[in-house]
Nucleic acid binder design. Structure first.
Lengths: 230, 230
DNA sequence: TCAAAAGTGTTCTGCATACACCCATGT
DNA sequence: ACATGGGTGTATGCAGAACACTTTTGA
């Protein structure tokens, strides 16, 4: 390499993940408590430095696997942050990703930093390490945009779910209230839900029907998108 | 810095800009012809390595200033690319930005790489250096999305313009045809256009009225956005 | 029988769409 | 007078928004 280029090859790069989960009532994210400086004791987004021979996507998958024990999670790149002083140890640029996890699939993984991970209600997040609040805001906004145009919300639900749960998910993500009749009309029109024939068990009210995704329709919509302007 | 971290601080980072312009008929981008390896002789997006003490936005502004002689251009971050082998000289990650320029403001700047710059019709772009075709595609898609929800298209027009020019701009960006009556109805309803009182000169047909932006309304819309689902 | 959530239809309004003719100017 | 692009209004259909009561179960 030519000499005048050397000084540019002195930066580090990381990825940070906003891992969203839905517990049936609230939208949550996974945070980890840092056990070392800088920001010792602060809560932070899971993330890691990108190795010199590692792709961005590999890096995200690695972090998610270590954190949740799960592979092939849905994720989307959101924004890259590069303020000169964003990391106290040196020049580290970072790219924020959001990820969707079925909270029921998630199990704490005893290895690595996952031991310190916790689900926190999105609305209860306080001051985070580094510029992670900024990354979080950016990811929330992107999720809100994407959920209206692509059927990604369903990555957050268990295989069988009620329409009320689905509506609650949209309400939690978009932070608005939806009309029950209009919501059902619109969702059912889209035609990617199938009745399972089952209903809720042991609820002290009229049990709701359980639905699942019609794989075919669902994959079709995944590729061409939809409009859910609520 | 701790030793085990050293190996991560060996990457370089760049920004690449898709500079859009509109000549009244077609959507164009500024490309530069490379005069050195790698990809000597190839056309490429304007861009540069980010200095160790330089913010991303500063870096974009610097490149745009060198390229066009203009400051304070509108730009938006789009996507970051980090494939391990994307740059032959070493590990260089890059973030793609798109930028909007009033083509009439643009003057070739004799300094720096601008001498080799040329406006190319978006549809005529062939094989570019590095992964720049990918970056371009990503920026075009983003521009198409953004132009429907924010009044950014107007960054591409001169201060006074006709409704037909405005429609042509939307058609060029979105690559579709629009109905003239419906377009005018919708645009005028939005209420951020003001008649200048002037009309076209020296045209061999009925001269069109010239419009300008109503700054107040325009800035209002900039912050809250709009819906232009065409 | 009561509490609690599930489930269901209609009306109204506004916006997108489709569509054809006359107008003002320069040559 | 003709060629060229500028400029205008209406009717239709569809989708979003608002809105209240009955049903089913467990306690």
């Amino acid at each position: 390499m030519q000499d005048h280029l050397q000084k540019y090859f002195t930066l580090a790069f990381s990825i940070d993940c906003v891992v969203f989960g839905f517990d049936g009532a609230d939208l949550k994210i996974l945070l980890i408590e840092r056990g070392e400086d800088p920001f010792d004791g602060f809560w932070a987004l899971p993330g890691d430095l990108v190795a010199p021979d590692e792709d961005l996507n590999s890096s995200v998958n690695r972090v998610l696997k270590e954190l949740t024990g799960l592979s092939d999670l849905f994720f989307e790149q959101v924004e890259t942050f590069g303020a000169v002083d964003r990391h106290p140890l040196g020049r580290v640029l970072t790219t924020g990703y959001y990820t969707l996890v079925k909270i029921s699939d998630y199990e704490l993984n005893p290895s690595s930093f996952a031991a310190e991970a916790r689900w926190i209600n999105v609305n209860d997040v306080k001051e985070l390490a580094f510029d992670h609040n900024q990354i979080l805001d950016s990811c929330i906004q992107r999720l809100q945009k994407s959920v209206r145009t692509r059927p990604i919300g369903f990555e957050l639900l268990p295989p069988h779910f009620t329409l009320t749960e689905l509506q609650g998910l949209y309400e939690a993500i978009l932070n608005i209230e939806l009309d029950i009749r209009n919501f059902r009309k619109k969702i059912l029109q889209m035609n990617f839900l199938k009745e399972t024939g089952q209903v809720q068990q042991n609820v002290s009210h009229r049990p709701a029907k359980l639905y699942q995704f019609d794989e075919e329709q669902y994959n079709l919509l995944k590729s061409k998108g939809f409009n859910f302007e609520v």
